[in-house]
Write a protein that binds this DNA or RNA. Structure first.
Length: 206
DNA sequence: CAGTACCA
DNA sequence: CTGG
């Protein structure tokens, strides 16, 4: 499996999923969004909505509302438990994470063509020994990454449908975000847009 | 215990 | 970029 180090601990796997695998994963995600509809998260304190909508699979899901960021076992609107993670996603974690326990959470972010994600760190977990594994589906995204401090210099790379990226070791807590999508860059999603899955181990293993 | 994946 |  070809891979490129973008920075120490940050590894890029171009074309990790071939087209048939992307289509199978998309079908599984449609089933998840049927059980657990996309919701619009908002910023703590201000209530400013995100331009990205999200849902989750797995034991825990990441949510954000006026009260803050957290992981919780149920959907914020339906109150039901999150659907199971797709089998494919577990296989990707086993292949890419080099971590001996399964992930607790699969955050599913849906980007409409104009959606963005500001620079942030994934630091709401307890277990930073486990990496974060990210899978991209649909339109190409301009992904920006920096260092452990907000002011550190940044670089960008385009993430295309089927690409994977792993944030591990010294890159586990780097700042990263999505500047924009490249319109019309994929025909996987009929209406355009992008799905991003991030797999995380939230709690310390028993 | 505080912490802004937002915006200005 | 920083602060709210």
């Amino acid at each position: 499996m070809p891979s490129l180090p973008l920075a120490p601990g940050l590894t890029y796997y171009p074309d990790y999923l071939d087209r048939p695998a992307q289509e199978r994963l998309l079908a599984a995600l449609r089933e998840i969004t049927r059980q657990a509809p996309l919701f619009t998260p908002c910023m703590p304190r201000t209530g400013q909505p995100f331009s990205v909508r999200m849902t989750n699979g797995g034991r825990l899901g990441w949510v954000s509302d006026v009260n803050g960021y957290r992981y919780q076992p149920t959907h914020p609107e339906t109150g039901r438990p999150w659907p199971a993670m797709p089998e494919q996603v577990l296989r990707a974690w086993e292949a890419l994470s080099d971590y001996p326990h399964p992930p607790d959470a699969c955050l599913i972010n849906f980007y409409e063509p104009a959606a963005r994600m500001g620079m942030h760190q994934d630091r709401d977990e307890e277990e930073f020994d486990a990496p974060v594994v990210s899978l991209s589906l649909g339109d190409t995204a301009v992904f920006r990454y920096g260092g452990l401090e907000r002011r550190d210099p940044t670089r960008s790379v385009r993430l295309r449908s089927g690409d994977a990226i792993v944030f591990g070791g010294p890159a586990r807590l780097i700042y990263h975000g999505i500047d924009r999508l490249v319109p019309g860059s994929s025909d996987l999603l009929p209406q355009g847009g992008r799905l991003n899955l991030t797999l995380r181990k939230v709690g310390k293993p028993l």
